[in-house]
Computed example of a mutant assay.
Amino acid sequence: MPFNPLNRRLAIVAGLSVVAGCVPAGRKPPPPAAVPITVQTTPPARPAPTLARPQLPPQPSAGLLNTVQALGAGFDGQVGISVRDIDEGWAVAWEGDVARPQQSVSKLWVAIGVMDAVDRKRLSLTDPVTVTRADLTVFHQPIRALVGKTGYKTTIADLLHGAMTRSDNTANDVLLWRVGGPAAINRMLSDKGIDGVRFGPGERQLQARTAGLEWRPEWAGGWGFLQARAAMTYEARDKALRRYVAAPMDGASANGVTLGLSLLAQRKLLGPPSTASLLTLMRSSKTGPLRLKSGLRPGWTLAHKTGTGQDLGKVSTGYNDVGLLVSPDGHRYALAVMIARTRQPITVRMRLMGDVTRAVIAQASR
């Protein structure tokens, strides 16, 4: 190719361009142009919330727990004790889930059945009732003196008063059959959630079977039954009584009874007027003034129901007292002391019951 000065000039420029694009050895490349950096600002983390300590349910004092345990363990006999704080919800017990004979404690459930029927307009407290000699039962029945040849005219209210304040067996039995009998009471107990309580066959059958007999209609009034029982051997009566205590037809646990009392006090069994009326009757009870009531202090009240079973020699059965204890400031407790079997004298039994009341009051007063 012939020499051209213009081509030479272009070649020199091209060479200089290549040299300018190379970095001599040992030299660092120039820093790149600054690129803006976006920084995302995160707010400071909040401190983890402090977890509140779980609220523990109210508990009875160790002193009361120890006292109830000591009273139960120290008593010479078969006993169940239950103390339930209705307003705080705790309970302490000694053998509180064992079924014990109720005897006349069961009148409480008949009374609730009657008042429930009143609430449902199935009965009225003013309904007239005629009690006849065929209605008479056994043992304690003050109404018997009023029942003549033509019977005794009274009302549901008067029968309820006799059953709950004087523990009249006949008054209670007449009311029992007015509300449908034992099956109706057991249905009510189940429907209202009173667990641990069973109603028996009624006063006449209960007392006859406890002695190892079957009730006869001609025994109405009690004398025929007492004569038949007296004709039995000691061994036969002892066997029947032991069988009854081991598996009572009217069995209830002390915890079951205090549960029922708590539901009553909370108006979960009856309407407010019926609840108030029944508790008034229970506060007016004439029976057992030296049982749970013996431990009361001024300002405290007790609405209660007693029970007393049959004796054989020095053995006593079904000696009970249950009730609602209320402090001067209105705090409520349900108590039950149920002695299934013991040889201890009445004074020792009553002292045990009073000591339970005293223990509850002492704890509340601290």
Rank of each mutant, 00 (worst) to 15 (best):
N169D: 10
P217Q: 03
S104V: 07
S17T: 14
V179G: 09
R187K: 13
Y333K: 08
R133I: 02
G193K: 05
F3H: 03
A211T: 08
Q310Y: 01
V356C: 04
P58A: 14
P57G: 15
T126R: 10
A211N: 05
S327R: 00
T137V: 06
L10K: 14
G354T: 07
S262L: 06
M115F: 05
R267W: 01
D76H: 05
P328W: 03
T132I: 01
P201K: 10
G354K: 02
R343L: 01
T170C: 12
I185T: 10
M350E: 12
P57V: 12
A157N: 14
A171H: 11
L159K: 03
A359W: 04
T342F: 01
R166G: 00
L175T: 06
A364L: 15
T280R: 15
E88G: 07
W219R: 00
G318Q: 00
M282N: 12
V360Y: 09
A134P: 07
A99F: 12
S61I: 05
A246L: 14
G202R: 10
M249N: 12
P54Y: 00
T306F: 00
M338E: 10
W177I: 12
S284W: 11
V257S: 14
W94A: 08
N255V: 13
T67C: 07
S61N: 06
L241G: 06
A48F: 07
T342E: 00
H161P: 08
G251W: 00
A157K: 14
I185D: 02
N172P: 02
Q55P: 00
L71R: 08
A20G: 10
A134F: 01
L125W: 02
G271E: 07
Y234Q: 10
M188F: 10
T210L: 05
G74M: 00
N7W: 08
D116Q: 15
L175R: 08
T50D: 08
L270N: 01
L10S: 12
A183V: 11
S294K: 09
D250Y: 12
Y319M: 02
L269E: 02
A91W: 09
H304K: 08
A163I: 12
R341C: 03
V322H: 00
S104W: 05
V360G: 10
L175Q: 04
Q59F: 03
D168R: 04
T130N: 14
S82C: 11
S106Y: 03
K293Q: 15
H140P: 12
S17W: 10
P298V: 03
K149P: 15
A93Q: 09
K149C: 05
T137H: 01
M164H: 01
G202K: 11
T275P: 07
C22W: 01
S167L: 06
Q40G: 12
G323W: 02
R229W: 10
V114P: 11
L160T: 07
I346Y: 03
G15W: 08
A334R: 03
G89T: 12
G309N: 09
L259V: 11
A364R: 15
S294G: 03
G15I: 11
R358V: 07
S106N: 11
